[in-house]
Simulated scan of single mutants.
Amino acid sequence: MLFILKSDLLKVKRKWFWLLVFLGPFGVIALQMVNYGVRYDYLMKQQPDVWAGLLENINMFVAPALLLGMTILASQIAALEHQQSSWKQLLSLPVKRREVFTSKWIIVCMMIFISSTLLFLGTVLFGISLKFSVHDIPIFAVLKNSYYPFFAGIPVLCLQVWMSIVFSNQAFPLSVGIFGAVFSLAAYAAPDWVPWKWPLLIGAYDPLWYVIAGLITGSILFLAGMTDFVRREVLS
């Protein structure tokens, strides 16, 4: 497993993947820079708790950015093998198929987790730059706003990795992922059982419910995808 992970990390080392990992959280924070730059006085009056107001504004863009990042990263990592027609060569090595699938999944998870960490740091630094009180930083709330969407979105990540590996033509998984990201912008009124709504952390339940639902559903989809990959003789 460690050998496969090292191999996959080497494949993405000189690619633009890491730029995308940075661009996601940077884009979310940059949008808020513009938002607060244009409407600072209005936003200060709207929410007495300035940190809570900042988190609400950031949360609006976290879900679509997260889902789009999962889609692109999963597609591009799988495309490395598809474009070079190296699946047969890779699977002919003395490695287990489930480890190959798991390695791709771990790489995408790791990158999204790093993006969530950058979002956490960016949120704190941006709040400080707006001269919000350092002593009043709601660390736990910022952590929830940065990491909860990631855990709640695990089912989408598993689905995108699965589809990206199975389909050599990335048009289908990319279309599904982009549609899901766009859908999340207007998913507030969607039923709570829709996974693309869960990263919003908004609905009839506590945000922790969506995290738990994401982890459980994600585990099921991960096992289903890995089982399907192990049983496939030729990737199409």
Rank of each mutant, 00 (worst) to 15 (best):
S219M: 04
I29G: 07
F132P: 13
L91G: 04
F17P: 11
F172I: 12
M33H: 11
L54P: 08
V134Y: 10
S116C: 11
F167K: 04
Y42R: 08
W198M: 03
G24K: 07
L20Y: 12
T217P: 00
L125V: 12
V38Y: 11
I112K: 05
K144C: 10
I58Q: 07
F150Q: 11
A79C: 07
K96V: 06
L54V: 12
R232I: 14
I4F: 07
S115C: 09
P173Y: 09
Y148W: 13
P191A: 02
V100R: 01
L9T: 06
S92V: 07
P64I: 05
W105D: 07
L235F: 07
F179R: 01
N145V: 13
K88Q: 14
Q160Y: 02
V21D: 06
L93I: 06
F172D: 00
K11D: 08
Y148F: 15
I154P: 01
L93S: 08
E233W: 02
V21N: 04
V95L: 11
V12K: 09
F113K: 09
Q32P: 12
F17S: 14
Q83I: 08
L201S: 01
G218P: 03
G27L: 12
V12R: 09
A74L: 12
I58A: 10
Y210G: 00
W16L: 15
H82Q: 03
L130Q: 10
M60I: 14
A74Y: 08
M111K: 03
Q89S: 14
P149I: 10
L2S: 14
A152V: 05
F132I: 10
F167Q: 01
P173G: 04
I154L: 05
A171S: 11
R97W: 11
P207I: 06
M33R: 11
I4D: 04
C158M: 14
Q76I: 12
A181P: 04
M163S: 06
T227V: 14
Q47F: 13
K6T: 14
D8S: 15
L43F: 12
V211S: 01
S146I: 04
L20I: 15
L174K: 01
L54F: 08
